[in-house]
Each structure stands twice: as C-alpha cells, then as structure tokens.
Write a protein that binds this DNA or RNA. Structure first.
Lengths: 221, 221
DNA sequence: CTGATAATTTATCACTTGATAATTTTTGCG
DNA sequence: CGCAAAAATTATCAAGTGATAAATTATCAG
C-alpha cells in the first residue's frame, strides 16, 4: 500500500507533506494565511498542524529554511573564475543555471514576501552575492579587456552598483513572471546571451571611465 | 487657531490626515494592518475610520490611488525623444528623474506589497513603460548608431527584454533600499551615467547580433 | 482477532478583528 | 452665552483565529 493511500500517515511523512504543501500554499496566498485555510486546503484538521509544528511561526521558519537552504551552488563561483572558457560563455552558463534555480514561483514569491516582512531573512543570501560573486564578475570582465582588476575601497561602491544593475535584472524576470504575472519568454538562453554580450562589451568600452571615476574617490554614500 | 490644534477637525482635513498617515503606516507595516493598529498609531478611535472610509478595503483602494496617481510624468517620453541632445544625456536625465520619483519608501513598498496581493493593480502602471517607453529607449539608442530601428513582431520580444533588463535595475535599487534595507549610494547620478554608458555602448556594439537574432524569428515565448 | 499505541478529529477557549449603533464632546453661529 | 449640527468616542456584536484538551479512529505487532 502506497504511503499516500494511508489515512494515518507516519509522523515523518505527514510532517514533510504538510511542509511541502505549505510552501506552495504560502507562495500563492502569501504569508498571511490562517492555519484553518492551510489545513482545509490540505484536507486535514486544523489542530493537526500543531502536532507537527509548535506554532504558526515555527511552521513559517521551517518554510523559509526549506526554500532558501541548498539553493546556492558553490560551483557557480568556480565556473565564473574558470579562465579556460571565454568570459561571455562563463557568464552565460552561470546565469542560465542561476535563473533556472530562482525562476521558481515558490522561491520568488516567498523571498519577496518574507523580505517585505523582515529583511533579516534575506541578508544571508544576499551577502553571498554581494561579497563574493559580484566582485568576481567584474574582475573577470575586466580581465577580458586585459586589465587585472583589484577591488579597492575607492572602486568598491561603483563596481558593486554596476554588477548589481546587471545581475538583479535576472532576478527581476522572476518578479515579472510570478509577482506581476507578466509573460516572459519561454526560452531564456538567447536573451541571456545577448544581455551578457551587451554587458561585457559595454563594461569593456566604458572601463577607462569607470576606473577614472573610481579614482576620484568615494563621493558615494 | 491652526487646523492641526483642533480636536475635532473638519471632515475633509481629517480624511486627508488619515489617508496620508495610512500611506506611511501601510508602507512600513504592510498591507495586513488592523484598523485598530492604524487608529491607535494615529491617535484616534477605531470607529472613526468608518466615518471617512466605507470599509477597510475602501481605505486600501484610496491608498493605491494616492500612491500611484500622478507619479508618471508624460514629459519623460518627450525628453527621451528629443534628438537635440545626445542619447546618453537624455537617458541619464530621464533616469535621474525616474529614480527621483520612485525611490520613495511608500511608493516602492506599497507597489511591491500590492503586486504580491493582486497583480492587477500594477498593470496600468507597467503597461505605460512596456508599450511606450521601452521601444522608444531602444529606438533612440539604435539611432545613435545610425540605425533607424522600427519595432516589428520579430524584434519585439528581444528588444523588450533588453530594455526591461536595463530599466528594471533602477527600480531594483528601490527594492534594495526599502525592502532588503541595503545601503545604496547617496548620490545616484554618477552611477546612472556610468550605467547608461555601459548600456548604450553595449547595445551599439551588439546591434548586428541583436538584429540577426531577431530576424531568426520568434523562438521566444 | 485484539489491544496498545500512534495519528487524527471534534469540541472548545480566549482573544482579535471589522463593523455598527448609541452616546458624548466639541465647534461655531445667532 | 446657548444650542444645534458635526465630529468623535465608548460600547458592543458576530465572525474569525491561534492554540489546547478530550475523544475518536486507524494501524500493526503478537
């Protein structure tokens, strides 16, 4: 007899079932669901939730853990740094993998909804991008132009903003799709490749100006 | 006696006071405030709200109207099309004005929160960008390279994605500042100008590839 | 088949919440 | 001032909500 056909599931299975269901449910209905709505939608009684989760907030925390954990692939930074490949190819492959991970209704909607509620939740995730991946992307593009770029306090802010502007636009495709409910193209690869081309060409051509502006010091912030 | 010193305000003044206060309140606390929380914070009794707003939802609708209305300046499209100025200068000026308008806590947080709740609310606003401003931006950049670009069904999707990617990154600065609570530079103009340079240079250099890819047909969507 | 155990539901509580009605307070005109 | 109209508050309701305890139902080893 398949587990799903049993009326009374084993505790571990039921807990996982509730959590999986709750992730989809919360992604669609938002963080302000009631425990009764959730239980009704899943087809169980409302007090059953309290057998598996201490309280409503405990369930929410477990949802965040499940959605954010194990979503960032440490191999991505290695890919970006692998100079046996042209930098455009590395960026394209990274962005294809990245968009493939985050263009997920649960990921996008729960990320944004939870950030609105409490930005603390997003900090761990964003720090990873901000401190490691962004400087790496800029340095690798600069290297394509024959310039071995080393981040300094003077260049840091401008470089960060340049890469943020480029990188965030891919996350924003998820916002358009799953929050605004706009249509976005089915196949992203050609678009990613064109936008990588635009970015790499543009940064290389603008590099002298970027370096000059950075030298003029931290007029920023 | 100043109006604000009166205990019993004129109906019109009180209505505006509640609405103004509610906009800040909702921007900070989210859409799921209770009428009691709002009334307490403002220092009036909860039933008073019902003298000025039919119900909770009526108040929310008036908040949306107040936040979104009169925020888009029709002069921006004229600015973008004004060829007496270099295209980089036009883009920079437009983006300085645009970011100046939208980088506002109330605007960003209420926009995102309401979109999460019901994407319908954002459609009127986004359609303006999508259908008019985005094609215009691309055409003007192409003209800088001596190419009088006319949008066709084949080019439409790719061009839209290219400009979305560029344009959304400025909105996203607001997301970073007011939702993630990241620091962003105080002075945006230098960053806007550099990013405009990168975009314009990149698009011009990539133009042959963009046109070729567009001709290969709508493999998109 | 049987009974102990685990899983689930029903019943219920105390508190919150949107909304309305009755009552009280303020304002400003004559 | 004195008083009617407007503005605001207090009191209250019915429905909803998170959480707990008691009762019930399914499961499975022996």
């Amino acid at each position: 007899m398949a587990k799903s056909a049993k009326k009374y599931l084993d505790a571990a299975d039921r807990e996982q079932q509730i959590l999986d269901f709750a992730i989809d449910f919360v992604a669609q209905r938002g963080l302000h669901f009631t425990t009764r709505e959730l239980a009704d939608a899943l087809g169980v009684s409302q007090p059953l939730l309290y057998r598996y989760f201490k309280n409503r907030d405990d369930l929410l925390q477990k949802i965040y853990d499940e959605v954010y954990l194990r979503r960032w692939d440490p191999g991505w930074n290695e890919l970006l740094a692998d100079r046996s490949m042209p930098v455009r190819e590395r960026l394209a492959r990274y962005l294809i993998a990245y968009t493939d991970t985050i263009l997920d209704e649960r990921w996008i909607r729960i990320f944004v909804a939870s950030a609105l509620e409490d930005p603390q939740i997003t900090i761990r995730y964003l720090g990873l991008l901000h401190d490691t991946t962004f400087p790496l992307i800029f340095a690798e593009v600069a290297a394509e132009a024959g310039f071995e770029f080393r981040s300094t306090p003077e260049t840091e802010v401008l470089v960060r903003e340049i890469v943020w502007g480029f990188h965030s636009s891919f996350f924003y495709m998820g916002v358009r799709k799953f929050i605004y409910r706009n249509e976005i193209p089915e196949s992203l690869e050609p678009i990613i490749r064109v936008r990588v081309d635009i970015f790499v060409s543009g940064v290389i051509e603008t590099l002298p100006r970027i370096l000059e502006l950075s030298r003029s010091g931290p007029q920023l912030e």
